[in-house]
Design a protein around this nucleic acid. Structure first.
Lengths: 346, 346
DNA sequence: CTGAAAGCGCTAACAA
DNA sequence: TTGTTAGCGCTTTCAG
């Protein structure tokens, strides 16, 4: 662990010059810069992050806050973000913040959450925070504001921070319209679990888009066609079994609010002996790795690219291109595969 | 961002005492400690990680190096490790190190890898490194040694570091024996892709366990019964379609080296109209979240618990319980479900 | 048990 | 363009 002093001696310059040369500052002559770089390389010198941070106030580290570490979607986002940040020389420190479930019993979860805001995020280890699908209460919002660091969000809008988000209403409309265009009128919807996502807007927004789209098409909506699941394959499977066996309803198409639930729906339909697409069309949202494998029609939201985009936003803000707090819309795209087909005429 | 000086003033003590009190050192009177804590709380004081690190040499941060960010298994490990470390007050900095694929073309990947070892891991941001399924060349090994920090591995053995690993031979024997015990004699195996995992021992080890188990039972092994896939559902699906349609062989059971491949196998068998368990028994390895859903018999290796265990090992080493570099065996357990059954008598 | 003071290794004014 | 110097905020001897 050579220090800057030794590099300076070897290069025959002052430590200040070494610091400047290695930081890529302009005010160093090419010759000096080369000498310094050679010396640093020879000694295997790498700047100490703690010393550099303390002196400069910059850490070269970005905190990424995620609600789930075991979900395909968030890992895709993380992968995209981490790669872009690493290429820019930033480390990524990972914080796991499960959504507050509001249960009295979950004191451990509440303590972890409080500690994240009171301690971990406040010890100035990060130059910026990248928060994915964060839901904040007022105190938490205040804490983050006190940090006086760039805060960027994916999946917002979050008041006061610059966010990138998907227009969930439009996405749901797009999915529903695809089914309507195929002639379906009895369209079911699998959404989130209201008990588990009290402050999480996305499921409700997608459901609203679904209902608005039906209304626009003059199709009456039926509460029996809407089922709740928990964004997992198992959840989608169970909900679909209910939908397809309830004698009161006869859905010919299902719009699931996520690809994992849609995959569960495909498996349930198969298990019931229904022909996917032939008997029941199924569409999801996300652009899951397995969508192609299951022939699943989906609204792709390019999660890994979202991670890259939001990481780029972080870098922009750190570079001082201080954009004001706005909410930008992310792209999405219908990808039609084998799980949806025109309504079979009776 | 109050500093220690203000806390000292408010508490009426010196900064040294504040530091000691907040670090939980013994040599502080209870009364003083209470005063300091009250002052810190009132001011919302949190120690600056950079200043503390520089002065003490400890960062309260652990680096976790993972080969894949989009695989269920590694995320389960990460989740377990991150939770334990966070509860101990440590931040987790995430490094993504895809396995070296040895392709000449992949210069970007090689550069990222080199930069991780030459720059990211050397700037002293971490008190310890936790490496999962790492394969190192000699230079990389030397770099890590130079760090003079605890290095702990999951999935080894890695020469020179303390590792926790699964006995892959025993696991494969256990899976194969389960099928043998059920009366199966034509047992196929789905393993990794040799081109893609040149230095990755696990698939070959599991295959060796499979073959040893067959040999012990006096069952002749047939190269046609071994297929290569890439540890994904799609890969397991394709391999199984081959296995079940090749007229030269008639497997009645399949041992897949991972649950994801085993799930692909189940789906392939279904698509071919075969009855899982009835016509073909299928067993995997991992203990995947979805194993229960698919009724998959598996050798559970408790990945999330592995993450916790290896994190605990890191904490032990940081606490100075410097165990020497050894390789400890991790527990595993056969979980029998609906995907395996006794051989149907012809 | 507590305080004074000397750094930890680097960066950023300010001078030259 | 380069060197000098004064910190960055904290921890840790060493005294007391």
């Amino acid at each position: 662990m050579a220090k800057i002093q030794r590099v300076a001696e070897l290069a025959g310059v002052s430590t200040a010059t070494v610091s400047r040369a290695l930081a890529g500052k302009t005010s160093v002559s090419p010759a000096t810069k080369a000498k310094v770089e050679a010396a640093a390389k020879e000694l295997g010198y790498v700047v100490s992050s703690a010393a550099s941070s303390l002196a400069s106030g910059r850490t070269r580290n970005v905190g990424v806050v995620l609600p789930y570490l075991d979900s395909w979607f968030f890992m895709a986002v993380l992968k995209g973000a981490q790669r872009l940040l690493a290429d820019a020389g930033y480390d990524v420190t990972l914080y796991h913040l499960p959504p507050a479930n509001g249960l009295e019993e979950d004191i451990e979860g509440a303590q972890r959450r409080a500690r994240l805001f009171d301690e971990f995020l406040r010890r100035q280890r990060c130059d910026a925070i990248l928060a994915v699908n964060l839901e904040l209460d007022d105190a938490e919002r205040a804490t983050l504001g006190d940090l006086r660091r760039p805060l960027v969000g994916l999946g917002g809008p979050l008041p006061g921070l610059h966010t990138l988000s998907l227009d969930d209403t439009a996405v749901a409309r797009c999915a529903t319209q695809h089914l309507l265009d195929l002639g379906h009128r009895h369209i079911a919807h699998i959404t989130g679990d209201p008990d588990f996502e009290r402050d999480f807007q996305m499921p409700a927004t997608r459901r609203a888009g679904y209902e608005a789209s039906l209304a626009d098409a003059g199709v009456e909506s039926d509460p029996l066609l809407v089922r709740h699941a928990n964004f997992t394959i198992e959840g989608g499977y169970a909900a679909t079994k209910e939908l397809l066996t309830d004698p009161r309803i006869h859905p010919t198409a299902i719009f699931a609010a996520s690809d994992e639930m849609a995959i569960g729906a495909i498996l349930a339909a198969r298990d019931l002996g229904r022909d996917v697409a032939g008997d029941v069309s199924i569409i999801g949202v996300d652009g899951h790795d397995l969508a192609e494998f299951f022939g699943l029609t989906t609204i792709d939201q390019f999660p890994e690219r979202q991670g890259q985009q939001v990481a780029q936003l972080v870098l922009d803000e750190l570079a001082g291109d201080g954009v004001e707090a706005v909410d930008e819309a992310l792209p999405y795209q219908l990808v039609a595969r084998r799980s949806t087909a025109p309504l079979r005429q009776p």
